[in-house]
Simulated assay, not measured.
Amino acid sequence: MKHIIPILAITLFFSCQNTAQNKKEQLDVQTADPIEVPIKSGKARAYFASGCFWCVEAIYESIKGVDESISGYSGGHTTKPTYAASNTGKTGHAEAVEIIYNPEVVSFETLVDVYFASQNVTQVNGQGNDRGSQYRSILFYQNEAQKEIILKKKAALAEKLNVKIAAEVYPFQKFWVAEDYHQNYERLHPDHPYIQNVSVPRLNRFKAKFPKELLKASH
Rank of each mutant, 00 (worst) to 15 (best):
69 S>V: 03
85 A>R: 09
148 E>N: 15
146 Q>Y: 12
43 K>H: 14
43 K>R: 14
204 N>F: 11
68 E>W: 07
97 V>N: 11
40 K>W: 08
101 Y>H: 03
111 L>P: 10
88 T>L: 04
143 N>C: 02
96 A>L: 10
57 E>G: 08
143 N>H: 07
184 N>M: 09
18 N>C: 10
44 A>W: 02
190 P>A: 14
18 N>Y: 15
44 A>I: 05
42 G>D: 11
52 C>L: 07
37 V>D: 10
219 H>R: 13
144 E>C: 05
9 A>E: 14
129 N>S: 13
77 H>F: 15
67 D>H: 14
68 E>P: 10
72 G>Q: 06
177 V>G: 05
105 V>G: 09
162 N>T: 11
169 V>Y: 00
144 E>P: 05
218 S>Q: 11
161 L>R: 14
112 V>Q: 02
212 K>Q: 14
73 Y>Q: 13
163 V>A: 06
86 S>H: 08
135 Y>W: 06
8 L>N: 10
13 F>G: 01
137 S>P: 06
164 K>S: 14
135 Y>V: 00
119 Q>C: 10
41 S>W: 07
12 L>T: 13
2 K>S: 14
149 I>N: 05
214 L>T: 01
143 N>V: 07
61 E>R: 12
191 D>A: 12
46 A>V: 04
34 P>E: 13
166 A>I: 03
191 D>W: 00
138 I>H: 02
127 Q>M: 04
116 F>V: 13
143 N>S: 08
72 G>L: 05
13 F>H: 13
72 G>N: 05
132 G>A: 09
15 S>Q: 15
27 L>S: 03
